[in-house]
């Protein structure tokens, strides 16, 4: 039971030091902070453990493997220093794969952004049935990439594929070919499939951002006599820019790490024509049993991707600080 506080100040009586007796307000805060800290630690522990087990440890492991020659069997692989890096620099297949990665990053980032934005703008202006349009345009993104790759493989098939049949039907039979088996078209054919799915992702994210575009600003722009293109460039895009940068970052980084769709559709062939660093790393590590060389390649992919990730996020943060965004 507590007593009422004295009306007049009195000198402190000898007794327990501050904080050691009845809890004061400050003492109570300290206890709460400690409890909060403990709770915080408890809550982040599972994530830290998962990060340590699935990220930090494998990363450290990978860092070790790049300096040895591990074939997947030998428990004591020989130390070879920087040989994996020097071999990689002189390997013409790596440069061919890197060139394909660059093409993938440029086309595979630009095309989905343009297509996704275009469809999002179209659906944004449609009111009747927009739900069905959203569903239809987003559908490719939720399909498993393996299934997408297999089905598009059928579409590109030279004799029975829909694409060649459609070309023949409209009188463009001279353009028919084995899309995935022709080294001149294989990469772009796979890219076409990837763009189809990535554009769906861009579409749904951008459409969500468009819902938050300031209608008053749009009306004001209309009253000022702007045309559609001007409103897009000067009113809409600045407002959705942070979201647009976010999808750009994700799509761009996907270009560095692309693997599954190529692996399913061409396996990197014909004769390496569609190999990117990811598929080349896989074939080196798991088909040629050159685990260390494959790991070195994967590390290079990471090193190449990080500056872009950091740069894009800095840009996004700067825009957020400037108050841009829907």
């Amino acid at each position: 039971m507590t007593t009422a506080a004295p009306q007049t100040p009195v000198p402190p009586a000898p007794g327990p030091a501050r904080g050691q007796g009845r809890p004061t307000q400050a003492g109570s805060s300290a206890v709460t902070r400690k409890a909060q800290a403990r709770l915080g630690m408890l809550l982040v522990t599972p994530l830290m453990v998962l990060t340590a087990v699935f990220l930090v440890f494998p990363m450290a492991n990978a860092a070790y493997y790049v300096f040895v020659d591990f074939n997947g069997i030998d428990p004591s692989p020989p130390w070879i220093g920087l040989s994996n890096f020097t071999e990689l620099a002189q390997d013409p297949d790596v440069w061919a794969a890197f060139k394909n990665n660059v093409i993938w990053i440029v086309v595979g980032t630009t095309a989905p952004l343009v297509v996704g934005l275009a469809f999002a703008l179209l659906v944004w202006t449609v009111h009747r049935g927009s739900r069905w349009y959203r569903l239809a345009f987003f559908f490719p993104y939720v399909l498993p990439q393996v299934a997408v790759g297999v089905v598009w493989g059928w579409i590109y098939e030279p004799s029975r594929g829909w694409l060649n049949r459609a070309l023949e039907f409209v009188g463009l039979g001279s353009f028919t070919r084995g899309w995935l088996g022709d080294p001149d078209t294989a990469l772009y054919a796979v890219l076409g499939t990837a763009v189809w799915t990535a554009a769906a992702f861009v579409f749904i994210i951008v459409l969500s951002a468009l819902r938050n575009v300031d209608a008053d600003l749009m009306d004001a722009a209309r009253l000022d006599g702007t045309n559609s293109f001007q409103r897009l460039v000067y009113v809409i895009i600045p407002q959705i820019m942070p979201v647009f940068l976010m999808v750009t970052t994700i799509t761009l980084l996907g270009g560095f790490s692309v693997f599954d769709i190529i692996f399913v559709m061409t396996g990197g062939g014909p004769a390496g024509a569609t190999d990117v660093l990811g598929t080349y790393a896989y074939s080196s590590a798991f088909q040629l049993n050159r685990i260390s060389y494959g790991t070195t390649l994967a590390l290079i992919i990471t090193v190449l991707a990080i500056p872009f990730a950091v740069m894009m996020n800095r840009l996004q943060r700067r825009l957020s600080l400037q108050g841009m965004g829907a």
């Binding site: 699935f54 990220l55 494998p58 990363m59 492991n61 990978a62 493997y65 980084l253 560095f256 790490s257 990811g278 790393a281 896989y282 590590a285 798991f286 685990i291 494959g294 790991t295 390649l297 994967a298 590390l299 992919i301 990471t302 991707a305 990080i306 990730a309």
Partner: peptide, 9 residues
């Protein structure tokens, strides 16, 4: 990006 490097180990 980090997971890329760990994928092959």
């Amino acid at each position: 990006a980090g997971l890329l490097a760990t994928a092959c180990t």
